[in-house]
């Protein structure tokens, strides 16, 4: 083999390789918009985080708002409900975790870890039973919290599962208290 041949074949390999790499990269980049288009669109993203006016909410009242297509229960609990929730020993709970993304992931399911920071009366829950996704009924069940009619799960006044087939406490959405009258969910 002469030097010419070797030089030529190397140059050819570089040419083929670089074109193949460039072509593959181009196809990959061109594919991205077609993958990305399946994501939520901008109008849905604009509603991914909502602000809720809770100024009209009085003690012992609940409102349900829709957030990302799901019901969110916002409840201003009575003193009795708070006391009852606080009195429970976490060792007795079926699910010992707080299920609250606003506190540490391994936080215990104490009532303090479940209610809103700085306002222990305020409870914000995603209103979907952790068993099979039904919407529980408020101020019902053996523990005075929520009761899921589908398969009989009982939640207490802190939204914790106490009896029934549901494996976990009612989830809490990411939220923050913006002002005395407004909370921001999401």
């Amino acid at each position: 083999m002469s030097i010419d041949t070797i030089v030529d074949s190397t140059r050819r390999d570089v040419l083929y390789l670089s074109t193949a790499v460039l072509g593959a990269a181009g196809i990959g980049l061109a594919a991205w918009p077609f993958i990305a288009q399946m994501n939520p669109d901008d109008s849905a993203l604009a509603l991914a985080s909502i602000e809720v006016d809770i100024s009209a909410l009085e003690e012992g009242q609940s409102i349900t708002v829709k957030w990302r297509g799901k019901p969110v229960f916002i409840r201003l609990r009575t003193a009795a409900e708070i006391a009852e929730a606080q009195s429970v020993d976490t060792a007795d709970l079926m699910d010992p975790l707080a299920r609250n993304p606003n506190v540490a992931a391994d936080a215990e399911a104490t009532d303090g870890n479940r209610s809103a920071a700085g306002n222990e009366a305020l409870l914000v829950l995603i209103g979907i039973c952790t068993h099979l996704g039904c919407v529980p009924i408020g101020e019902a069940g053996d523990y005075g919290g929520w009761f899921c009619p589908c398969h009989g799960s009982h939640y207490d006044t802190s939204g914790r599962i106490r009896k029934g087939p549901a494996p976990e406490n009612l989830y809490i959405p990411p939220f923050s208290v913006v002002s005395e009258t407004t909370i921001k969910i999401g």
Binding site: L15, S18, T19, L22, G23
Partner: peptide, 11 residues
């Protein structure tokens, strides 16, 4: 890409 493809084609 077109330029590279042209070189390959020629080759």
């Amino acid at each position: 890409l077109g330029a590279l493809l042209y070189l390959i084609k020629k080759k």
